[in-house]
Design a binder for these strands. Structure first.
Lengths: 239, 239
DNA sequence: TGAATTAACTTGTAAATACAAGTTTGGACG
DNA sequence: CGTCCAAACTTGTATTTACAAGTTAATTCA
């Protein structure tokens, strides 16, 4: 499965090792091949390998120890939504079911809940809007509201998002890569709608995450709001 | 102000540029000197400069653009508690007042709220325990409970933490550096005690952050729990 | 046998170099 | 005067080399 046209080598290596860990080739407590061995395997040099390992460290897959090696920590527990990855890759596709609540449609921007100001040209174009419910192990955990400017996304509203990664579609169909972003987290009380979808009682505390995602396409940002029932699945992060 | 004995060069450069940004030498929208210019200024080479800039990007101080340069974003808005820094350096010392609620004392471990299992030797030794209230702009925002094993920390309980950074004391007095850590975030309802200290009503949603911090001293971890009123100050992070 | 030392690993930091790719600027040419 | 294009920047990726510092294991010597 090729990911994209010209992925830099360190990302290729990163993806391979990452997959090996989530597939169980390397298990928790194992020690990865040394950096020099990885150089030989992947036909590259240490700085490249180290750049790949840096990412794995940052995302909690491995931990490094000088003089010893890279120790596999396993697939990060909890939900690593604080990282670059979307929900799908953060929790693993196995236990995640996505239910589309509001199919992608073009509508006006709803800036009421947005923590970030819109750019002029974004406001001119319409907004592609959809809502998704993420269910892990039969329990609803996330409620996603995604908004993105309707710029050069032909046929998007007719695509089927069910159990597919939004990021994957953007990358393969439109050649748009997520390159970074920022987010604000706060604790709120679930409103009626969220109560219903996340199956919680009135007055239940909810994690509200307001994100602005940056892409490889100049001036094209994704805005998303995630409501998370953190009772069962805490948000996890390493640093 | 020297920070530590032998800080690697890329960290020195990082600290300098970071200070320049928070001091306003470089302001929001400015473009940093090019990497080659920074090389000349700091008498080092691009890989070293880039490693310093990588950190600044990760913490939201700057944003880089190929072909253009490094654009200063300013001091990260909100509270960057998701990063490596402690609260003091994350929000700037100016507006932060720290009130000691429970002075450092040696007591048994209280594992009831701890999300991480204790190591054997940690349990054997006692626990240094203290509670602090962080007040920003006259509003209580954080309630910190910190626990750390009572191993080789002579005279710690008689030290004055008021308005001082815990990390600074550990680094200067005990030569202990924070090297990383992990955390879990969840939304909870404030209990009586938290309600009182954070000055919120019953049923108010609170961000609960459970952290385990790793240090340069082998096997020495800090455990801390932060209760945050995210109404005024959201938790902020870039990635 | 047992303890200390050494050698052979590991990762961490750093330099010097090269080229690719994106942006800006200014000059040549119509 | 305006347009196009090339040169001179910028950051991104990659290689090669070197040494420092921490860990492990084998070897040596008492």
């Amino acid at each position: 499965m090729r990911l994209s046209k010209n992925l830099p080598q360190y990302k290729v290596v990163y993806e391979i090792i990452r997959k090996h860990i989530s597939d169980g080739v390397y298990q928790k407590g194992d020690i990865l091949p040394s950096e020099n061995e990885l150089c030989a395997v992947h036909q590259t040099t240490r700085p490249t390998i180290r750049k790949a390992l840096d990412r794995l460290v940052h995302e909690g897959y491995i931990k490094k120890k000088q003089g010893k090696g890279s120790i596999v920590m396993g697939v990060p527990q909890g939900v690593g939504i604080l990282s670059l990855s979307g929900t799908t890759s953060a929790v693993g596709q196995e236990n995640l079911i996505t239910e589309i609540i509001v199919k992608p449609e073009i509508r006006q921007w709803d800036t009421s809940n947005l923590a970030y100001p819109l750019l002029n040209n974004e406001e001119e174009f319409g907004c592609i809007y959809f809502e998704r419910l993420r269910i892990m192990n039969k329990q609803p955990v996330f409620y996603d509201i995604t908004m993105m400017p309707n710029i050069n996304l032909r046929r998007f509203i007719s695509r089927n998002l069910e159990n597919k990664s939004l990021f994957n579609i953007l990358r393969t169909m439109y050649d748009i890569e997520i390159t970074g972003g920022e987010q604000r987290l706060m604790a709120i009380l679930a409103d009626k709608k969220i109560q219903e979808y996340l199956n919680v009682k009135e007055g239940h505390p909810i994690l509200h995450i307001n994100r602005k995602l940056e892409t490889s396409r100049e001036g094209f940002f994704l805005y998303s709001q995630v409501y998370c029932n953190s009772e069962k699945y805490a948000i996890f992060g390493t640093f």
